[in-house]
Amino acid sequence: MSLSSPAARSVDSPVVVDRGDGVAMRARGLSLGFGSTAVLADLDLDIHRGTITALIGPTGSGKTTFLRSLNRMNDKVAKHWHRGDVLLDGSNIYSPGVQLMALRRRVGMLFQRPNPFPMSIAENVLAGVKAHGIAGKQHYRAIVEARLREVGLWEAVSSRLGSSPFNLSGGQQQLLCLARALATGPEVLLLDEPTSSLDPITTEHVEALLRSLAPALTIVIVTHNLAQARRVSNRTAFFYQGRLVELTDTTKLFESPEHPETANYVSGRMG
């Protein structure tokens, strides 16, 4: 599927086409900033297909900014600029002909804080499905149920699908937003501290869900919870002051990091 011509695709079985090199997304010499401040400096980074990549680093190190550059959410920010490329399946998402809407259908995002839309719970799940015309009306009910079951929210909301999402708890709202993001069948899912408003048990459930999604879905997760990074991710990237210090297998990064800065951070002496 190319960026410029979004083809219809089944929601329930996202097909992952392996381009051979196993890289879903790649940043090449990416620098990015707002006005006179540079936030990211000359980043080179690969996101492997079908794996979970964790982004860790101290506050203000540019994790969110980098994550948002993967689906071009920084574009609207005042005085935003960038240099370098971000590739999705080998083609630059910043090149002129790219359709933002098609890009964001392929690269979904879950924010740090829940952000339901002012419409019913079911409509929330279907928002992206309808916007992209992914499925016909007759499939709506099935999609809503499947996605809500997937995130473990079905039992709690099945009796009030038509009511407002704002009466759900914060954690439930976040799960709803996850269901909404999954419903469009993205290839890459970006998560910015997705479990910071969830209790430990729900967090565990979400982590298990992410692990089960991973082979079909490429996941990038920003987290301040180092234990979470260790639990869910295959590879971990350590950001420090807008630079990528190290990106390697999670076990290696936590147990024998190459850079002293990484070692300091993962052992709790910094950050």
Binding site: N71, M73, K76, L100, M101, A102, L103, R104, R105, G108, M109, F111, R113, N115, P116, F117, P118, A127, G128, A131, H132, C177, R180, A181, T184
Partner: peptide
């Protein structure tokens, strides 16, 4: 801003 960004991130115009 958050729900508006959420809608954009979902690929809405």
């Amino acid at each position: 801003r958050l729900p508006k960004e959420g809608a954009l991130a979902l690929g809405m115009s």
